[in-house]
Design a protein around this nucleic acid. Sequence first.
DNA 1: CCAACCTTGACACAACCGTGGTAAGGTTGA
DNA 2: TCAACCTTACCACGGTTGTGTCAAGGTTGG
Lengths: 125, 125
Amino acid sequence: MDGLTINEAAETTGWSARMLRYVEKAGLIEPRRSDGGYRIYGPEELQRLRTLRELLGEHELGLNDIGFAKRLRDEPGLRVAVEEWIEAEPARPEHVATSDWLAWEQEKHQRLLDEPPEPKQEIAA
Amino acid sequence: MDGLTINEAAETTGWSARMLRYVEKAGLIEPRRSDGGYRIYGPEELQRLRTLRELLGEHELGLNDIGFAKRLRDEPGLRVAVEEWIEAEPARPEHVATSDWLAWEQEKHQRLLDEPPEPKQEIAA
DNA sequence: CCAACCTTGACACAACCGTGGTAAGGTTGA
DNA sequence: TCAACCTTACCACGGTTGTGTCAAGGTTGG
């Protein structure tokens, strides 16, 4: 079969067979299959499984965090949007009177909604 | 009080008061407090609350995703580790015999652990 | 002063995550 | 052939997320 079966892979990587299937369903590591449908883990997969374990353990992450990181890599629109939110635009114009800021920022919000003229380029999945 | 109280903020942002406290506990938006302890939302917070809603809704994200994105920004070691895992080192040398690959990749694993000498250059945000 | 509003803390609940099991049935390889 | 292993599909269970509600008590502002 040229590669490890799921239980062998489990043993050498520290995951359980159950979790290997789960990791696969999460879209992180998808081994090729034998003709009969058996999962076959090659050295690459084994290595990635080990480093994945380290990664999650050392930084208190979950599988979905990695999934999200992949999305950040693959969807530039998403990455930009998230970055922009986090790197929050502080500083509203100082000259806006306190009594006006509600109107001001609502108007701004409206501007942002009304005027999406720049068609952000989409990268099809 | 110069600012909106939690229920007022809820109304203009589309969140519920409950969720505003939740968002705060998640470390995403922490309004200042009145002397008596009331949350006071200024225009900045309101704007961020609105854009946060859009962000989450349009991309099917959760609050923890944003928290994770913040960690990616603030912890370069984490960012690098995640990026390196995702951008997986594929391609093992073709000349490694099939019968040897297990030993080969374990050795590699060991090399990676033992020898972290090259401080990869950091791309500051 | 006092109605209206806020605070924290708790109970509740559906949905999902990470994990383990088990059952019914197909694959492998000696 | 056949034991040993694999597959998918389920049940289960504690923990977390997102959300609402309610109680007991403090704050605000007219």
